[in-house]
Design a protein around this nucleic acid. Structure first.
Length: 491
RNA sequence: GGCCCCGUCGUCUAGUCGGGCCUAGGACACCAGGUUUUCAUCCUGGCGACGGGGGUUCAAAUCCCCCCGGGGUCACCA
Protein backbone atom coordinates (compact mmCIF):
# COMPACT_ATOMS: atom_id res chain seq x y z
CA UNK A 1 0.00 0.00 0.00
CA UNK A 2 2.83 2.37 0.73
CA UNK A 3 4.60 1.30 -2.45
CA UNK A 4 3.03 3.68 -4.91
CA UNK A 5 2.49 6.79 -2.89
CA UNK A 6 1.85 9.78 -5.11
CA UNK A 7 1.18 13.11 -3.47
CA UNK A 8 1.01 16.60 -4.83
CA UNK A 9 1.26 20.21 -3.88
CA UNK A 10 -0.99 22.40 -5.96
CA UNK A 11 -0.36 26.11 -5.48
CA UNK A 12 -2.14 28.72 -7.49
CA UNK A 13 0.22 31.37 -8.86
CA UNK A 14 -1.96 34.28 -7.87
CA UNK A 15 0.32 35.55 -5.14
CA UNK A 16 3.43 34.86 -3.15
CA UNK A 17 3.85 31.51 -1.42
CA UNK A 18 2.10 31.61 1.95
CA UNK A 19 3.88 30.02 4.87
CA UNK A 20 0.86 27.78 5.40
CA UNK A 21 1.21 26.63 1.81
CA UNK A 22 4.91 26.12 2.29
CA UNK A 23 4.23 23.87 5.26
CA UNK A 24 1.65 21.91 3.27
CA UNK A 25 4.25 21.44 0.56
CA UNK A 26 6.81 20.33 3.13
CA UNK A 27 4.49 17.71 4.61
CA UNK A 28 3.56 16.42 1.17
CA UNK A 29 7.20 16.25 0.20
CA UNK A 30 8.09 14.52 3.47
CA UNK A 31 5.32 11.97 3.11
CA UNK A 32 6.48 11.08 -0.38
CA UNK A 33 10.09 10.77 0.72
CA UNK A 34 9.20 8.78 3.82
CA UNK A 35 7.32 6.25 1.73
CA UNK A 36 9.53 6.20 -1.32
CA UNK A 37 6.76 7.76 -3.37
CA UNK A 38 6.50 10.61 -5.82
CA UNK A 39 6.03 14.27 -5.00
CA UNK A 40 4.21 16.09 -7.76
CA UNK A 41 3.91 19.79 -8.27
CA UNK A 42 0.87 21.03 -10.12
CA UNK A 43 0.23 24.66 -10.84
CA UNK A 44 -3.42 25.57 -10.45
CA UNK A 45 -3.56 28.52 -12.74
CA UNK A 46 -7.21 28.33 -13.74
CA UNK A 47 -7.80 31.83 -12.47
CA UNK A 48 -6.40 33.39 -15.64
CA UNK A 49 -7.00 36.90 -14.41
CA UNK A 50 -4.76 36.72 -11.39
CA UNK A 51 -2.21 34.05 -12.30
CA UNK A 52 1.21 35.18 -13.43
CA UNK A 53 4.40 33.50 -14.57
CA UNK A 54 6.33 35.60 -12.05
CA UNK A 55 4.39 34.24 -9.10
CA UNK A 56 4.78 30.75 -10.45
CA UNK A 57 8.55 30.91 -10.69
CA UNK A 58 8.78 32.64 -7.32
CA UNK A 59 6.82 29.80 -5.74
CA UNK A 60 9.02 27.14 -7.29
CA UNK A 61 12.09 29.06 -6.20
CA UNK A 62 10.78 29.29 -2.66
CA UNK A 63 10.23 25.57 -2.52
CA UNK A 64 13.77 24.86 -3.67
CA UNK A 65 15.06 27.36 -1.14
CA UNK A 66 13.42 25.35 1.60
CA UNK A 67 15.15 22.23 0.36
CA UNK A 68 12.37 20.50 -1.52
CA UNK A 69 12.61 18.88 -4.92
CA UNK A 70 9.80 17.42 -6.98
CA UNK A 71 9.63 14.32 -9.11
CA UNK A 72 7.06 15.59 -11.55
CA UNK A 73 5.90 19.06 -12.41
CA UNK A 74 7.00 22.24 -14.13
CA UNK A 75 10.68 22.30 -15.11
CA UNK A 76 11.20 18.56 -14.51
CA UNK A 77 8.26 17.23 -16.52
CA UNK A 78 6.83 13.75 -16.00
CA UNK A 79 4.53 11.12 -17.47
CA UNK A 80 1.29 12.62 -16.23
CA UNK A 81 1.62 16.13 -17.61
CA UNK A 82 0.95 18.79 -18.45
CA UNK A 83 1.42 20.06 -14.93
CA UNK A 84 -0.20 23.40 -15.46
CA UNK A 85 -3.90 23.15 -14.96
CA UNK A 86 -4.71 25.64 -17.69
CA UNK A 87 -3.18 23.23 -20.20
CA UNK A 88 -5.48 20.43 -19.16
CA UNK A 89 -8.72 22.11 -20.15
CA UNK A 90 -9.63 19.67 -22.90
CA UNK A 91 -9.52 16.72 -20.56
CA UNK A 92 -11.65 18.58 -18.03
CA UNK A 93 -14.32 19.35 -20.59
CA UNK A 94 -14.43 15.75 -21.70
CA UNK A 95 -15.07 14.62 -18.17
CA UNK A 96 -17.77 17.24 -17.76
CA UNK A 97 -19.55 16.03 -20.87
CA UNK A 98 -19.36 12.44 -19.72
CA UNK A 99 -20.87 13.43 -16.38
CA UNK A 100 -23.66 15.39 -18.01
CA UNK A 101 -24.50 12.50 -20.33
CA UNK A 102 -24.51 10.11 -17.43
CA UNK A 103 -26.98 12.26 -15.52
CA UNK A 104 -24.51 13.23 -12.80
CA UNK A 105 -24.56 16.85 -13.88
CA UNK A 106 -27.21 19.19 -15.20
CA UNK A 107 -27.54 22.61 -16.77
CA UNK A 108 -28.74 25.47 -14.61
CA UNK A 109 -30.04 28.70 -16.09
CA UNK A 110 -30.57 30.59 -12.86
CA UNK A 111 -29.16 34.10 -12.79
CA UNK A 112 -26.62 35.19 -10.22
CA UNK A 113 -29.22 37.63 -8.95
CA UNK A 114 -31.68 34.87 -8.15
CA UNK A 115 -28.92 32.81 -6.56
CA UNK A 116 -27.85 35.75 -4.42
CA UNK A 117 -31.36 36.36 -3.17
CA UNK A 118 -31.86 32.69 -2.48
CA UNK A 119 -28.72 32.55 -0.40
CA UNK A 120 -29.65 35.61 1.61
CA UNK A 121 -33.08 34.22 2.33
CA UNK A 122 -31.64 30.89 3.45
CA UNK A 123 -29.15 32.47 5.79
CA UNK A 124 -31.82 34.77 7.18
CA UNK A 125 -34.08 31.80 7.93
CA UNK A 126 -31.14 29.90 9.44
CA UNK A 127 -31.02 27.21 6.82
CA UNK A 128 -28.11 25.63 5.04
CA UNK A 129 -27.26 27.81 2.10
CA UNK A 130 -27.49 25.69 -1.02
CA UNK A 131 -28.97 25.72 -4.49
CA UNK A 132 -32.67 24.89 -4.43
CA UNK A 133 -32.46 22.75 -7.58
CA UNK A 134 -34.99 24.76 -9.49
CA UNK A 135 -33.46 23.78 -12.81
CA UNK A 136 -33.70 20.08 -12.14
CA UNK A 137 -37.38 20.47 -12.99
CA UNK A 138 -36.51 21.44 -16.55
CA UNK A 139 -37.33 18.90 -19.24
CA UNK A 140 -34.76 17.86 -21.79
CA UNK A 141 -36.66 19.87 -24.41
CA UNK A 142 -36.63 22.99 -22.31
CA UNK A 143 -32.92 22.67 -21.76
CA UNK A 144 -32.27 22.19 -25.45
CA UNK A 145 -34.48 25.14 -26.24
CA UNK A 146 -32.77 27.41 -23.71
CA UNK A 147 -29.37 26.43 -24.96
CA UNK A 148 -30.37 27.07 -28.57
CA UNK A 149 -31.75 30.43 -27.54
CA UNK A 150 -28.33 31.28 -26.19
CA UNK A 151 -29.34 31.59 -22.57
CA UNK A 152 -26.30 31.55 -20.30
CA UNK A 153 -26.00 28.47 -18.13
CA UNK A 154 -23.68 26.67 -15.77
CA UNK A 155 -23.19 22.96 -15.29
CA UNK A 156 -24.01 21.71 -11.80
CA UNK A 157 -23.10 18.46 -10.13
CA UNK A 158 -26.13 16.44 -9.06
CA UNK A 159 -25.58 15.49 -5.44
CA UNK A 160 -27.32 12.18 -4.66
CA UNK A 161 -29.33 11.35 -1.55
CA UNK A 162 -27.58 9.93 1.46
CA UNK A 163 -24.49 10.54 3.45
CA UNK A 164 -20.87 10.95 2.46
CA UNK A 165 -18.18 9.52 4.67
CA UNK A 166 -14.46 9.36 4.41
CA UNK A 167 -11.63 8.57 6.72
CA UNK A 168 -9.25 11.43 7.22
CA UNK A 169 -5.71 10.32 7.97
CA UNK A 170 -5.45 12.90 10.70
CA UNK A 171 -8.99 13.34 11.96
CA UNK A 172 -10.43 9.89 11.57
CA UNK A 173 -13.97 9.31 10.30
CA UNK A 174 -15.76 12.36 9.02
CA UNK A 175 -19.25 12.37 7.58
CA UNK A 176 -21.57 14.85 5.96
CA UNK A 177 -25.23 14.53 5.19
CA UNK A 178 -25.63 15.03 1.45
CA UNK A 179 -28.39 17.49 2.22
CA UNK A 180 -25.64 19.81 3.38
CA UNK A 181 -23.70 19.45 0.18
CA UNK A 182 -24.59 21.98 -2.46
CA UNK A 183 -25.26 21.07 -6.08
CA UNK A 184 -22.07 22.86 -6.82
CA UNK A 185 -21.02 24.39 -10.11
CA UNK A 186 -18.58 22.44 -12.27
CA UNK A 187 -18.53 24.67 -15.33
CA UNK A 188 -19.09 28.39 -15.23
CA UNK A 189 -21.28 30.27 -17.69
CA UNK A 190 -18.19 31.00 -19.75
CA UNK A 191 -17.46 27.29 -19.92
CA UNK A 192 -14.44 27.34 -17.64
CA UNK A 193 -14.19 24.62 -15.00
CA UNK A 194 -14.15 25.35 -11.27
CA UNK A 195 -11.72 24.27 -8.60
CA UNK A 196 -13.63 21.38 -7.04
CA UNK A 197 -14.11 19.89 -10.45
CA UNK A 198 -10.62 20.19 -11.89
CA UNK A 199 -8.92 19.12 -8.71
CA UNK A 200 -10.64 15.76 -8.93
CA UNK A 201 -10.01 15.44 -12.66
CA UNK A 202 -6.33 16.14 -12.21
CA UNK A 203 -5.77 14.21 -9.02
CA UNK A 204 -7.32 11.12 -10.56
CA UNK A 205 -5.52 11.59 -13.88
CA UNK A 206 -2.25 11.96 -12.01
CA UNK A 207 -3.00 8.92 -9.88
CA UNK A 208 -2.70 10.84 -6.63
CA UNK A 209 -3.02 8.48 -3.68
CA UNK A 210 -3.02 10.95 -0.78
CA UNK A 211 -4.40 14.44 -0.76
CA UNK A 212 -2.63 16.38 1.97
CA UNK A 213 -3.91 19.93 2.33
CA UNK A 214 -5.10 22.56 4.77
CA UNK A 215 -8.15 22.14 6.95
CA UNK A 216 -10.00 24.88 5.10
CA UNK A 217 -10.59 22.23 2.43
CA UNK A 218 -12.38 19.85 4.75
CA UNK A 219 -15.82 20.99 3.63
CA UNK A 220 -14.83 20.61 -0.01
CA UNK A 221 -14.03 16.99 0.52
CA UNK A 222 -17.57 15.54 0.37
CA UNK A 223 -18.10 17.30 -2.95
CA UNK A 224 -14.97 15.73 -4.29
CA UNK A 225 -15.64 12.30 -2.86
CA UNK A 226 -19.05 12.32 -4.48
CA UNK A 227 -17.49 13.26 -7.77
CA UNK A 228 -15.02 10.39 -7.61
CA UNK A 229 -17.96 8.10 -7.02
CA UNK A 230 -19.92 9.48 -9.95
CA UNK A 231 -16.84 8.90 -12.07
CA UNK A 232 -16.66 5.32 -10.86
CA UNK A 233 -13.30 5.98 -9.24
CA UNK A 234 -11.95 5.25 -5.82
CA UNK A 235 -11.20 8.43 -3.91
CA UNK A 236 -7.68 8.99 -2.61
CA UNK A 237 -6.93 9.22 1.09
CA UNK A 238 -7.30 12.64 2.60
CA UNK A 239 -5.25 14.30 5.30
CA UNK A 240 -6.36 17.72 6.47
CA UNK A 241 -3.66 19.70 8.19
CA UNK A 242 -4.43 22.02 11.10
CA UNK A 243 -4.33 25.70 10.29
CA UNK A 244 -1.51 28.05 11.20
CA UNK A 245 -3.06 30.76 13.35
CA UNK A 246 -2.22 34.36 14.11
CA UNK A 247 -2.01 35.63 17.68
CA UNK A 248 -5.74 36.33 17.42
CA UNK A 249 -6.22 32.57 17.00
CA UNK A 250 -7.66 33.07 13.55
CA UNK A 251 -6.26 31.80 10.28
CA UNK A 252 -2.97 33.62 9.81
CA UNK A 253 -3.51 36.67 7.69
CA UNK A 254 -1.57 39.74 6.73
CA UNK A 255 -3.24 41.62 9.56
CA UNK A 256 -1.46 39.54 12.18
CA UNK A 257 1.99 39.40 10.65
CA UNK A 258 4.05 38.46 7.67
CA UNK A 259 2.42 35.61 5.83
CA UNK A 260 4.60 35.19 2.78
CA UNK A 261 7.56 32.87 2.84
CA UNK A 262 9.61 35.55 1.13
CA UNK A 263 8.99 37.98 3.96
CA UNK A 264 11.05 35.74 6.21
CA UNK A 265 13.60 35.08 3.54
CA UNK A 266 14.11 38.80 3.07
CA UNK A 267 14.49 39.31 6.78
CA UNK A 268 17.31 36.81 6.77
CA UNK A 269 15.84 33.73 8.37
CA UNK A 270 18.00 30.73 7.47
CA UNK A 271 16.06 28.38 5.17
CA UNK A 272 16.86 25.44 7.44
CA UNK A 273 15.24 27.28 10.32
CA UNK A 274 12.18 28.15 8.30
CA UNK A 275 11.75 24.54 7.27
CA UNK A 276 12.29 23.43 10.84
CA UNK A 277 9.92 25.95 12.37
CA UNK A 278 7.14 25.42 9.87
CA UNK A 279 7.22 21.71 10.61
CA UNK A 280 6.97 22.42 14.32
CA UNK A 281 3.65 24.09 13.61
CA UNK A 282 1.44 21.05 13.78
CA UNK A 283 3.95 18.27 13.87
CA UNK A 284 6.42 17.00 16.45
CA UNK A 285 9.30 14.70 15.68
CA UNK A 286 9.21 13.04 19.09
CA UNK A 287 8.04 15.69 21.50
CA UNK A 288 11.59 16.38 22.62
CA UNK A 289 13.65 17.25 19.57
CA UNK A 290 13.18 20.84 18.53
CA UNK A 291 16.02 21.27 16.07
CA UNK A 292 16.04 18.88 13.14
CA UNK A 293 17.08 18.74 9.50
CA UNK A 294 14.97 18.19 6.43
CA UNK A 295 16.46 14.69 6.21
CA UNK A 296 15.18 13.90 9.66
CA UNK A 297 11.80 15.20 8.58
CA UNK A 298 11.83 12.90 5.58
CA UNK A 299 12.76 9.92 7.73
CA UNK A 300 10.25 10.54 10.50
CA UNK A 301 7.17 12.25 9.10
CA UNK A 302 3.90 10.50 9.94
CA UNK A 303 0.27 11.56 10.04
CA UNK A 304 -0.11 10.09 13.50
CA UNK A 305 2.17 12.82 14.84
CA UNK A 306 0.29 15.67 13.21
CA UNK A 307 -1.81 17.75 15.60
CA UNK A 308 -5.51 18.22 15.03
CA UNK A 309 -5.80 21.71 16.44
CA UNK A 310 -4.48 24.87 14.85
CA UNK A 311 -1.20 26.32 16.04
CA UNK A 312 -0.47 29.92 16.88
CA UNK A 313 2.50 31.27 15.00
CA UNK A 314 5.05 32.40 17.62
CA UNK A 315 7.66 34.76 16.21
CA UNK A 316 9.72 34.58 19.42
CA UNK A 317 10.28 30.89 19.07
CA UNK A 318 10.91 31.28 15.38
CA UNK A 319 13.68 33.79 16.10
CA UNK A 320 15.15 31.51 18.73
CA UNK A 321 15.21 28.65 16.28
CA UNK A 322 16.79 30.85 13.62
CA UNK A 323 19.50 31.65 16.17
CA UNK A 324 20.18 27.97 16.71
CA UNK A 325 21.19 27.79 13.06
CA UNK A 326 23.10 31.05 12.70
CA UNK A 327 24.96 30.74 15.99
CA UNK A 328 25.86 27.08 15.79
CA UNK A 329 26.59 26.79 12.10
CA UNK A 330 29.91 27.19 10.29
CA UNK A 331 31.25 30.74 10.16
CA UNK A 332 32.22 30.42 6.50
CA UNK A 333 28.66 29.55 5.54
CA UNK A 334 27.29 32.37 7.64
CA UNK A 335 29.59 34.84 5.90
CA UNK A 336 28.30 33.77 2.50
CA UNK A 337 24.70 34.06 3.61
CA UNK A 338 25.33 37.45 5.21
CA UNK A 339 27.06 39.08 2.25
CA UNK A 340 23.93 40.16 0.36
CA UNK A 341 22.63 41.70 3.58
CA UNK A 342 25.81 43.73 4.00
CA UNK A 343 25.36 45.05 0.51
CA UNK A 344 21.66 45.78 0.73
CA UNK A 345 22.24 47.57 4.03
CA UNK A 346 24.61 49.84 2.16
CA UNK A 347 27.60 48.95 4.31
CA UNK A 348 29.79 47.37 1.67
CA UNK A 349 29.97 47.15 -2.09
CA UNK A 350 30.25 43.96 -4.05
CA UNK A 351 33.92 44.75 -4.68
CA UNK A 352 34.70 45.38 -1.01
CA UNK A 353 33.14 42.06 -0.17
CA UNK A 354 35.96 40.23 -1.88
CA UNK A 355 38.72 42.75 -1.18
CA UNK A 356 38.12 42.63 2.54
CA UNK A 357 37.14 38.97 2.74
CA UNK A 358 39.24 38.04 5.73
CA UNK A 359 38.31 41.16 7.62
CA UNK A 360 34.61 40.55 6.95
CA UNK A 361 34.91 37.03 8.21
CA UNK A 362 36.47 38.28 11.43
CA UNK A 363 33.82 40.97 11.77
CA UNK A 364 30.97 38.52 11.33
CA UNK A 365 32.71 36.08 13.62
CA UNK A 366 32.62 38.73 16.32
CA UNK A 367 28.82 38.88 16.25
CA UNK A 368 27.91 35.34 15.27
CA UNK A 369 26.86 34.32 18.74
CA UNK A 370 24.59 37.31 19.15
CA UNK A 371 22.60 37.33 15.91
CA UNK A 372 19.63 35.22 15.00
CA UNK A 373 18.73 36.34 11.50
CA UNK A 374 21.06 37.64 8.81
CA UNK A 375 19.64 41.14 8.76
CA UNK A 376 20.88 41.60 12.31
CA UNK A 377 24.47 41.28 11.12
CA UNK A 378 24.72 44.63 9.32
CA UNK A 379 22.77 46.20 12.20
CA UNK A 380 25.35 45.03 14.70
CA UNK A 381 28.31 45.79 12.48
CA UNK A 382 27.20 49.25 11.41
CA UNK A 383 29.45 50.92 14.00
CA UNK A 384 32.51 49.66 12.12
CA UNK A 385 31.51 51.73 9.11
CA UNK A 386 30.80 54.96 10.94
CA UNK A 387 33.03 58.01 10.73
CA UNK A 388 35.25 58.09 13.81
CA UNK A 389 33.94 61.47 14.93
CA UNK A 390 30.32 60.50 14.44
CA UNK A 391 29.87 57.13 16.06
CA UNK A 392 26.25 56.96 17.15
CA UNK A 393 26.12 56.73 20.91
CA UNK A 394 23.36 54.67 22.38
CA UNK A 395 21.61 56.27 25.35
CA UNK A 396 22.31 53.35 27.62
CA UNK A 397 25.95 53.21 26.55
CA UNK A 398 26.41 56.86 27.47
CA UNK A 399 24.76 56.32 30.81
CA UNK A 400 27.01 53.36 31.58
CA UNK A 401 30.09 55.31 30.53
CA UNK A 402 29.28 58.47 32.45
CA UNK A 403 28.73 56.51 35.59
CA UNK A 404 32.40 55.51 35.40
CA UNK A 405 33.84 58.76 34.17
CA UNK A 406 36.68 59.08 31.67
CA UNK A 407 39.67 59.06 34.04
CA UNK A 408 40.63 55.49 33.30
CA UNK A 409 40.18 55.88 29.58
CA UNK A 410 42.11 59.11 29.58
CA UNK A 411 45.15 57.47 31.19
CA UNK A 412 44.70 54.35 29.14
CA UNK A 413 44.79 56.33 25.92
CA UNK A 414 48.42 57.36 26.43
CA UNK A 415 49.38 53.89 27.53
CA UNK A 416 47.70 52.00 24.76
CA UNK A 417 48.69 54.24 21.87
CA UNK A 418 52.19 52.81 21.32
CA UNK A 419 50.94 49.29 21.93
CA UNK A 420 48.22 49.56 19.31
CA UNK A 421 50.63 51.03 16.85
CA UNK A 422 53.14 48.26 17.42
CA UNK A 423 50.46 45.79 16.42
CA UNK A 424 50.26 43.48 19.37
CA UNK A 425 47.62 40.79 19.11
CA UNK A 426 44.20 41.21 20.73
CA UNK A 427 45.01 38.44 23.18
CA UNK A 428 48.27 40.05 24.29
CA UNK A 429 46.69 43.45 24.62
CA UNK A 430 43.82 42.00 26.61
CA UNK A 431 46.18 40.46 29.16
CA UNK A 432 48.39 43.53 29.41
CA UNK A 433 45.37 45.77 29.82
CA UNK A 434 44.03 43.68 32.66
CA UNK A 435 47.33 44.01 34.43
CA UNK A 436 47.38 47.73 33.73
CA UNK A 437 43.90 48.18 35.20
CA UNK A 438 44.94 46.48 38.42
CA UNK A 439 48.20 48.34 38.71
CA UNK A 440 46.46 51.66 38.31
CA UNK A 441 43.82 51.00 40.92
CA UNK A 442 40.85 50.83 38.53
CA UNK A 443 38.10 48.32 38.22
CA UNK A 444 37.37 46.66 34.88
CA UNK A 445 34.17 48.61 34.16
CA UNK A 446 35.95 51.92 34.87
CA UNK A 447 37.82 51.45 31.63
CA UNK A 448 35.63 49.13 29.62
CA UNK A 449 32.33 50.96 29.87
CA UNK A 450 33.53 54.30 28.50
CA UNK A 451 35.83 52.51 26.08
CA UNK A 452 32.96 50.48 24.69
CA UNK A 453 30.90 53.57 24.21
CA UNK A 454 33.71 55.43 22.49
CA UNK A 455 34.58 52.55 20.21
CA UNK A 456 31.15 51.19 19.31
CA UNK A 457 28.55 53.53 20.76
CA UNK A 458 26.68 50.50 22.06
CA UNK A 459 26.00 49.19 25.55
CA UNK A 460 26.88 45.65 24.62
CA UNK A 461 28.81 43.82 21.99
CA UNK A 462 31.90 41.80 21.18
CA UNK A 463 35.12 41.74 23.16
CA UNK A 464 36.71 45.18 22.92
CA UNK A 465 40.11 43.91 21.87
CA UNK A 466 38.53 42.15 18.93
CA UNK A 467 36.73 45.39 18.17
CA UNK A 468 39.98 47.35 18.17
CA UNK A 469 41.53 44.77 15.91
CA UNK A 470 38.65 45.20 13.46
CA UNK A 471 38.81 48.96 13.69
CA UNK A 472 42.58 49.16 13.33
CA UNK A 473 44.88 51.30 15.51
CA UNK A 474 44.23 54.59 13.77
CA UNK A 475 40.48 54.44 14.01
CA UNK A 476 40.56 53.00 17.51
CA UNK A 477 42.70 55.82 18.81
CA UNK A 478 40.64 58.44 17.03
CA UNK A 479 37.46 57.08 18.54
CA UNK A 480 38.93 57.03 22.02
CA UNK A 481 40.02 60.60 21.61
CA UNK A 482 36.59 61.69 20.45
CA UNK A 483 35.06 59.75 23.26
CA UNK A 484 37.19 61.58 25.77
CA UNK A 485 35.60 64.88 24.84
CA UNK A 486 32.15 63.67 23.87
CA UNK A 487 31.61 61.81 27.12
CA UNK A 488 32.67 64.76 29.22
CA UNK A 489 30.59 67.34 27.39
CA UNK A 490 26.92 67.78 26.83
CA UNK A 491 26.06 64.24 25.76
C1' G B 1 -27.05 30.98 11.84
C1' G B 2 -26.55 25.67 9.29
C1' C B 3 -22.80 22.08 8.71
C1' C B 4 -17.90 20.30 9.89
C1' C B 5 -13.42 20.23 12.84
C1' C B 6 -10.91 21.13 17.32
C1' G B 7 -10.01 21.96 22.95
C1' U B 8 -2.96 19.73 27.85
C1' C B 9 1.39 25.49 30.77
C1' G B 10 0.87 32.60 27.80
C1' U B 11 2.81 29.92 23.03
C1' C B 12 4.62 25.17 20.21
C1' U B 13 3.96 20.36 21.96
C1' A B 14 4.76 14.83 24.52
C1' G B 15 1.28 11.73 26.87
C1' U B 16 -4.95 9.96 24.76
C1' C B 17 -5.60 4.64 20.15
C1' G B 18 -4.34 -0.32 23.80
C1' G B 19 -6.99 3.66 31.49
C1' G B 20 -2.30 2.71 36.23
C1' C B 21 4.96 3.86 34.82
C1' C B 22 1.71 11.42 34.93
C1' U B 23 3.08 14.28 42.31
C1' A B 24 1.50 15.54 33.47
C1' G B 25 7.62 15.55 30.26
C1' G B 26 10.36 18.91 26.71
C1' A B 27 10.92 23.74 24.16
C1' C B 28 10.02 29.23 23.49
C1' A B 29 8.80 33.37 26.48
C1' C B 30 9.06 35.23 31.45
C1' C B 31 11.47 35.57 36.56
C1' A B 32 15.84 34.63 39.86
C1' G B 33 20.99 33.24 40.33
C1' G B 34 25.98 31.86 38.25
C1' U B 35 29.75 32.84 34.25
C1' U B 36 31.49 37.46 31.21
C1' U B 37 34.82 43.93 30.53
C1' U B 38 29.40 44.63 28.47
C1' C B 39 25.66 42.33 25.42
C1' A B 40 24.89 37.63 23.67
C1' U B 41 26.08 32.57 24.47
C1' C B 42 26.35 28.90 28.22
C1' C B 43 24.88 26.62 33.14
C1' U B 44 21.42 26.19 37.46
C1' G B 45 16.76 27.00 39.58
C1' G B 46 11.67 28.96 39.40
C1' C B 47 6.82 30.16 37.37
C1' G B 48 3.15 27.59 34.69
C1' A B 49 -1.79 23.40 31.83
C1' C B 50 -5.31 18.35 31.43
C1' G B 51 -12.10 24.15 29.41
C1' G B 52 -16.49 22.80 32.97
C1' G B 53 -19.91 19.18 34.94
C1' G B 54 -21.64 14.38 35.30
C1' G B 55 -20.73 9.25 34.81
C1' U B 56 -17.87 4.08 34.04
C1' U B 57 -13.72 1.98 37.02
C1' C B 58 -10.02 -0.24 42.50
C1' A B 59 -7.81 3.65 39.17
C1' A B 60 -9.20 8.77 33.88
C1' A B 61 -5.47 13.89 30.78
C1' U B 62 -6.67 9.06 28.65
C1' C B 63 -13.38 5.66 27.92
C1' C B 64 -18.94 7.57 27.66
C1' C B 65 -22.61 11.72 27.98
C1' C B 66 -23.93 16.86 28.44
C1' C B 67 -22.41 21.82 28.49
C1' C B 68 -19.04 25.68 27.34
C1' G B 69 -15.33 27.71 24.33
C1' G B 70 -12.43 28.39 19.75
C1' G B 71 -11.86 27.77 14.59
C1' G B 72 -13.11 26.50 9.46
C1' U B 73 -16.73 26.70 5.70
C1' C B 74 -21.15 28.13 3.38
C1' A B 75 -18.65 32.03 -4.31
C1' C B 76 -19.87 31.30 -11.67
C1' C B 77 -11.79 32.14 -5.84
C1' A B 78 -8.55 28.36 -5.29
Amino acid sequence: MSENVRVRFAPSPTGRLHIGGARTALFNWAYARRHGGKFILRVEDTDRERSTAEFESAILEGMSWLGMDWDEGPVVGGDFGPYRQSERLEAHLEVAEELEKGGHAYRCFCTSERLGELREKQIATKQTAAYDRKCTALTQDEVTHNLAAGLPSVLRFRVPEGETKFTDEIRGDVSFSNKEVDDWIMLRADGSPTYNFVVVCDDSAMKITHVIRGEEHLTNTPKQVLLYRALGLEAPSFAHLPLILGTDKKKLSKRTGDTALDDYRERGFPPEAVMNFLCLQGWALDGETEVFSIDQLAKNFAFSAVSKGGSVFDLQKFLWLAGEYTQKGELEALVERAKPFMVSAGLMTQAELSERGEWLKAAIGSVQERVRIYSEIPEQLAYLFATDAEVVYDEKAVKNAKKRGVDAMSNYFEWVRPRLESSSTPAELREETRTWIGENGFKFPDLFQPLRCALTGAAGGPDLFDVMELLGPESSLARIQHGLSRLVDSE
